[in-house]
């Protein structure tokens, strides 16, 4: 078990918080609650946080596991450069985004969850972590197909007495050549 990378948990927490913020916002606007303008902000902030957090970072050690379809989001987030790589920026961004949610009941849960994600990101930043894109999957060299048939023994060799005799020992040869092959008379 490797050193804890807090960003991986912060990522899960922030994604969940974004969904909760978005849900609270939708509820607040659909129900036309008092202060529904804060709920509208919640919708926008929730969508933004989900888009920002959807591409998972590359892990410092161990296999990086992508979310399905995250590649295009990764490219977008990567294009913002140091703003999205630095987890201090993320921590303060999430802290700023969660403040308006605290003014309305429908979004207060998203507000607190995003605040917690902000704290975890701060912990990740303090531990020196940063966001790295998972760009290309290095395709491992595929092992060959399993052998379907077991290897066979080679066919048995003939016993020594049946093997061909050498030419210099013609007297012991069992075979009598009718035509002379040594002297051309």
């Amino acid at each position: 078990m490797a050193k804890i990378e807090w960003a991986m948990w912060a990522n899960e927490q922030a994604l969940a918080a974004g969904l909760i913020y978005l849900t609270g916002g939708i509820v607040g606007v659909a129900g036309q609650f008092r202060g529904w303008q804060f709920a509208a902000f919640g919708i926008a902030a929730g969508v933004f946080v989900c888009l920002l957090e959807y591409p998972r970072s590359k892990r410092g050690k161990g296999t990086s596991i992508e979310r399905s379809g995250q590649y295009c989001f990764t490219v977008c987030v990567k294009s913002f450069g140091p703003l999205t790589r630095n987890y201090y920026v993320r921590a303060f961004l999430h802290a700023a985004l969660c403040v308006p949610g605290g003014f309305m009941l429908a979004t207060v849960l998203g507000c607190v969850c995003l605040g917690m994600a902000s704290l975890i990101y701060l912990s990740a930043a303090i531990h020196g972590e940063h966001w790295e894109p998972i760009l290309h999957i290095e395709t491992k060299k595929r092992l060959g197909e399993s052998i379907k048939e077991p290897p066979q023994n080679p066919p048995p060799r003939p016993p020594p007495e049946l093997r061909r005799k050498k030419a210099d020992n013609l007297d012991a040869a069992a075979y009598d050549n009718p035509m002379s092959v040594t002297i051309n008379e």
Partner: peptide, 12 residues
């Protein structure tokens, strides 16, 4: 729930 995701549980 967020700390129980497969990635977190397996690696951390």
């Amino acid at each position: 729930i967020t700390s129980s995701m497969e990635v977190i549980r397996r690696s951390y």
